[in-house]
């Protein structure tokens, strides 16, 4: 987020209020005092809410587990040689044939649930965050283009956005996967297609306001290329709402991926995400073997709620109407 020095002032402008403040402070206070940049102010504001910090901490732990799953898991759940069918469907805390403890029990294949969840988190986060990121890039570019050029380009792009948003996300994703079939790449594609419109609409909304400001006019008078105006001048000023929507969409896309995988149209069985783990344990739940789908469910829940806690507070911090 740190802007290049030449455009620092421009970036400071819309998050607006802090900029004059900081200048006054910098003048009156001795030079040793740290200047309050928008970024620093944002961090201070964010730290106001213990709940949001807690969410961030929990998410950090989850991300750590997802990234380092192969090194911290007790067992490699994909390696069939490490599994023993005799260990199948053991209760949480029971011992395996060769003396290991399964803290969260095992599934029908004798797979350690904890390892399964660690690896599942990895896939869930990869698909969820990855698709949200790609959708962000696509949606932001199209939204900026629509707002900047206006006219025909704008109406064509926004027509597609409207049409897309009038169908429920789950339905569009289901349609795409019914046509393309299972697979991680297909799920990512489906999630990108259902999500880009949210970003495009958000960016267009704030870009429409920003593009009438003087600094855009100034940039145009300098005969800067459109690409540069779009991404170096317009985009940084549309970031705050985008960050909020982006955070919420990561949670949404993880939840949607889990739902699709639960329905059996998402990720393939060889690379189970949390949703697929839950689906696998579903049939055993009715016979009282709750842990096979309960613990992956808890992992999914904690992930989604922690992201939402952060996103909810980000919305308060970044909302210019709420700023003092």
């Amino acid at each position: 987020m740190t802007p290049p020095p030449a455009e620092g002032t421009i970036v400071a402008k819309p998050a607006a209020t802090p900029a004059p403040d900081s200048e006054v402070q910098a003048e009156t206070a001795p030079a040793a005092v740290r200047v309050e940049t928008p970024l620093r102010r944002f961090i201070v504001d964010f730290c106001d809410s213990p709940l949001a910090l807690f969410g961030l901490a929990v998410f950090a732990v989850i991300a750590f587990i997802a990234i380092f799953a192969p090194w911290i898991s007790p067992q490699n759940p994909y390696d069939l040689a490490q599994l023993d069918i005799m260990d199948g469907r053991l209760e949480p805390g029971s011992q395996s044939m060769d003396g290991k403890t399964f803290y969260l029990g095992t599934d029908d294949q004798g797979r350690d649930m904890m390892s399964g969840i660690f690896y599942g988190l990895r896939i869930s986060l990869l698909v969820g965050a990855g698709s949200a990121l790609i959708a962000l890039l696509v949606g932001t570019t199209l939204g900026l283009t629509a707002a900047f050029f206006g006219g025909r380009v704008d109406s064509v792009i926004m027509r597609i956005v409207d049409l897309q948003l009038s169908f429920p996300t789950i339905l569009v994703a289901l349609m795409i996967l019914a046509i393309l079939g299972k697979g991680i790449a297909n799920v990512v594609l489906a999630l990108v297609i259902v999500q880009w419109a949210y970003y495009a609409r958000t960016v267009r909304g704030s870009a429409l306001v920003e593009r009438r400001r003087e600094y855009i006019e100034a940039a145009q008078c300098l005969a800067l290329p459109n690409r540069r105006i779009l991404f170096r001048h317009l985009l940084p000023n549309c970031l705050p709402p985008l960050i909020v929507v982006g955070t919420m969409q990561v949670a949404h896309s993880i939840s949607l991926e889990a739902t699709l995988s639960f329905l059996g149209v998402g990720v393939p069985i060889t690379e189970p995400s949390l949703g697929l783990l839950i689906a696998n344990g579903f049939e055993y739940m009715l016979s009282g073997k709750y842990w096979i789908s309960f613990y992956p469910g808890i992992a999914l829940l904690v992930t989604i709620v922690s992201i939402n806690l952060v996103g909810d507070h980000l919305r308060d911090v970044l909302n210019p109407r709420l700023q003092k």
């Binding site: 889990a258 739902t259 639960f262 579903f282 739940m285 009715l286 469910g297 829940l301 709620v305 939402n308």
Partner: peptide
């Protein structure tokens, strides 16, 4: 109501089954 917006509905369904049916 925040939970209602953010929890995946299949998960809620599973919990309902676990509690009220099982």
């Amino acid at each position: 109501s925040i939970l209602g917006f953010s929890l995946p509905s299949f998960w809620v369904g599973l919990m309902l089954i676990m509690v009220f049916a099982v």
